[in-house]
Design a protein around this nucleic acid. Sequence first.
RNA 1: GCUCGGGUGGUGGAAUUGGUAGACACGUUGGACUUAAAAUCCAAUGGACAAUGCGUCCGUACGGGUUCAAGUCCCGUCCCGAGUACCA
Length: 1174
Amino acid sequence: MNYNFNEIEAKWQKYWADNQTFKAKNPGSPPSEGLGEAYYVLDMFPYPSGAGLHVGHPLGYIASDIYARYKRHKGFNVLHPQGYDSFGLPAEQYAIQTGQHPAVTTENNIKRYREQLDKIGFSFDWSREVRTSDPEYYKWTQWIFIQLFESWYDYEQDKSRAISELEEIFASEGNKRVKAACDDDVEDFTAEEWNAFSSEEKQKILLKYRLTYLAETEVNWCPQLGTVLANDEIVNGVSERGGYPVVRKKMTQWSMRISAFAERLLQDLDKLDWTESLKESQRNWIGKSVGAMVEFPILSFPEGEEKARRGYMTGGNNAHLLLEKARENRNSPTDAEKILWNHLRNKSLGYKFRQQHLIDDFIVDFVCLSKRLVLEVDGGIHDLQVKEDENRTKIIESKGFKVLRFRNEEVIGDIDAVLEKIETALSGQPHVSEKVQKAPPSGAGGIRVFTTRPDTIFGVTFMTLAPEHELVKKITTPEQKEEVEAYIAASAKRSERERMADVKSITGVFTGAYAEHPFTKEPVPIWIGDYVLAGYGTGAVMAVPCGDQRDYDFAKHFYLPIKNIFENADISEEAFSGKEGTVIANSDFLSGLKYKEALQKAILELEKLGLGYGKTNYRLRDAVFSRQRYWGEPFPVYYVNGMPQMISAEHLPLTLPEVEKYLPTETGEPPLGNSTEWAWDTENNKVVPNAEIDEKSIFPLELNTMPGWAGSSWYLFRYMDPHNEEAFVSKEAQQYWESVDLYIGGSEHATGHLLYSRFWTKFLKDRGYLSVEEPFKKLINQGMILGQSAIPYRAKITLVSNLDNQKDTPDDYYEVKADLIENSNSVFFSADLRAKGVRFIQEKINGLSYFTSMKKEFEKIIKNSFGLKLEKSSVYIQYSGFSDPRVNLQFLDGLSDNLNLAALKSSGDEELKNAIYLDSEGSEITDCDKQNFVAAREVEKMSKRWGNVVNPDDICEDYGADTLRMYEMFLGPLEQAKPWNTAGITGVHNFLKKLWKLYHSTPNPSLGGENSFSVSDEPASKDSLKTLHKTIKKVTEDIENFSFNTSVSTFMICVNELSAQNCNSREVLEPLAILIAPYAPHIAEELWSKLGYSESIVTAEYPVYEEKFLVESTKNYPISFNGKMRFTMELPLDMSKEEIEKTVLADERAKSYLSDAPPKKVIVVPGKIVNIVI
RNA sequence: GCUCGGGUGGUGGAAUUGGUAGACACGUUGGACUUAAAAUCCAAUGGACAAUGCGUCCGUACGGGUUCAAGUCCCGUCCCGAGUACCA
């Protein structure tokens, strides 16, 4: 019998299906005893696309399948399910184009997927299959959504709680003391106020606390896809799917308050057995930064806004003039001022006072900022200005200050009485140290910035706002208005992409306004610049040019001052960004302090002033949860007076309605708006036609659907108890299986799916529905299997280099005539021409631009493509797109690299059709038959478009599933990306044939050459047992370390050795079959049944490694001289060090290396090595 | 820029705590079997020198260092890949 893999594999696949071999046992259902220890192995479930599987897809499934089967042999009750993430864009796009219902497309695709998967012999428990688009499944997705709606996040207890508990708190004590995750614009209210609110007002407020909430947010709108996208669905400023542009737009959307979980999501990463790089991605995404929120009061406003202001110095919208005046006043105080200052300075009264200080547009004589107390000393002339003084006092008091007025005589005559009055006033004023979270203390408003370096606050020389910052319009002076508006308009036009591509250019405009430095009280000019992002922090920065490179560049560019506040730092060329060990200088009370001390001190002082507080900022934003699509979970939501209401859980699922068109409606509503039956009857609890909406008992339903990650965020729990109609998972099942022990999937989900499902798991745990905090204990990212593509090198670039000036130009270059390049659409050149080193020279330099941002990329291309190293200053380019086009592999002549130009030119691609092709000599190809054009090969993603997809079905047909499984593992480490090369598969296939032969007798040609099964019951030889146990040891270690490639090698070595030993002893071949069963299950089953077993091999006990078979009495010692191995010697292992040394040195070969001189030193490591130093 | 991985034959890749570098396989070359091819089997295969063997030298991106001994540890440099990016 020969190894007929097709027959064997079909037979066992049928057997497994018929016998439900891989059905995992659940607690509660019979047989409930002896379940064994639970082990949960999960693959990321696939989206069933129309293209079917290629050989890259099963890689992770094979690895997890091997592990699952291994664990079964080890006696575990293994849960190894599979399902489909079956809601998604492609089916819907297809529906838009063809009108075919996405459910039909999806069903067909799933069928195809299942067929393909079945052929590979996975040990999935298909009785537990889930599909996210199945109403019985998404019923529970909707249910979880409702739970989120009914919850809020309590920072005090650091967990999610029921919204009813929050209502209780509001009713009994208002919201002041509640530390909850909520919207920014929540206003304080008391219990009385709360109780007096109408039901609608209450709902509005509660919405700001719910873990899923409806709010107008700035979203990423993708016009081409007609939907919004989450941050993780955008790659490089364009949509992940389709690569369409994305714009910012304000829309009312459902959001998930994932930001409330930021700290837990970050902290708990440490508990997980994930790769460091993956954890790092999540850390990056969460983006925690610790620092301070600081407020810079705004000093000046343009005329016209608050014109009525009067003071001793009116009309001053130029704060620096005021400040100059203040400085002047400080330098020439009146006698009374001098006396008073002597009593106030240095915190003599316990509080810090400042003199001649600017408040709004007024210079006051003295002020204690932390107590909001202003002292004025009036001289004689003020008698004439009583009215103006009153006015001035009023305005200052409106800013929250108390004003005390003294006359010169009072101060000079009885300073003690004056001081007493001041002390009384001070004690009567509240201490302003409250965090500046709510309205800023000065009524005029301030600019709030987030900084991680409050210690550098004395280095602030200007501020920069994002162009979109809401204050920009308010503070811009009339003189600057035109310029500022032009700048805002220009930067609004620039797309996200342009902004990213052009990182280096420095742009910005002065607003004309000034802010006040919280400590020095000096004016700080306010600029706008698009290096500041509206979306991060507060959209404003305090610029510290000496410590931040971007601020530094900005300052240099606009000739703004740069103040050095670091001891011994050279900032003449660039900013100094050192932290640890840095000593702050030139910074008032921070001078001489080290970074850490200064940081704390700065925050403390800011808090005292009421102008700042320590704050932790996260980059993680709340996730937008609405999609304007058809093919997704409907929200269980209807609207009463515009307020969202949940459909109660017992009426779920709310199933997707039928629509005629899958496009948005004419009025721009989502596709569900096309449905005529999409209203909710609250009396009968069912969906009714839209026409019946009366806003009394029948209300409109939500038109958006949920995003793709909704269903995938919790599916792991559904597998535990997939048919439960009472709950998404029973407590019993969940507590038995806990969470996923091993999760395998692609790294592209690092910041999407993996973060969201951690979030939902934590939430469900908080609310008591789960016993675990994290969904995936161990996670492995399988690398991608790549295909090959063919590339004609594009030469549509104009390059002028100063190569002529360089002495060492390559001899072997080829000149391509400039006019050839100029006159064509595209020029491609043969890969072998490129290899020679090509140089393009154009004589006329017309319209050349110099793009800094492209330069680096270009230099790389020149270097990689032409092997030329160019001086940085020598490259000038005219950009016209560098990407080389990919050509479908079908255009290659056979297996060669030669492009079939005739076929290519008759293809549909305009560019390729009209292009000029240069052969290896650099001349244009006119005769496609005689001249060759060589395409370059590149390793990249498999894609139907490029014809480089390898189908696993074909491999199974030609070599068998066992070969495919082992070969995919053999390719290299699981986590590494690697190119597919079908040629190499023969090695693995031959191995399986050899394995088969071990169990069969040598063919006898006279009997027709048929092998027959033949295993002897004779005891195995010592060597064979040694081989077996060596293999058990290594394979077990490898499997535990997920080093599947090396275990395949180990099997090969084992079979090679056993073949050489002519081993056919049952004692060895039976354990070997079990060892290999996880990898090549079909052949193992076949051999197992031939060995006489009627039961499947899948639960056969894993062989136990026994050391005694490996014990050696001798060791082949490598003998090295000065560390270089020269020869080996077979010596007994129990030989002592001294004896070894003696024996080795006595050896003839050793003598010849020593050439009679005694060795300097002899190192003997028993059992390892002997090294002789000469 | 930052973070995390890497850099070993013609190729994919092995190499426990530092201890015989290149396991295993592909490819290539030669041979056997065949009318022939395929399949199968055997042998060789890091490079250079020597070539009959004995051998010698050089070799894990590059330059240093530690050590009896370095692919492995330390310092510096270069390059590649992935993620992320005016993150204040």
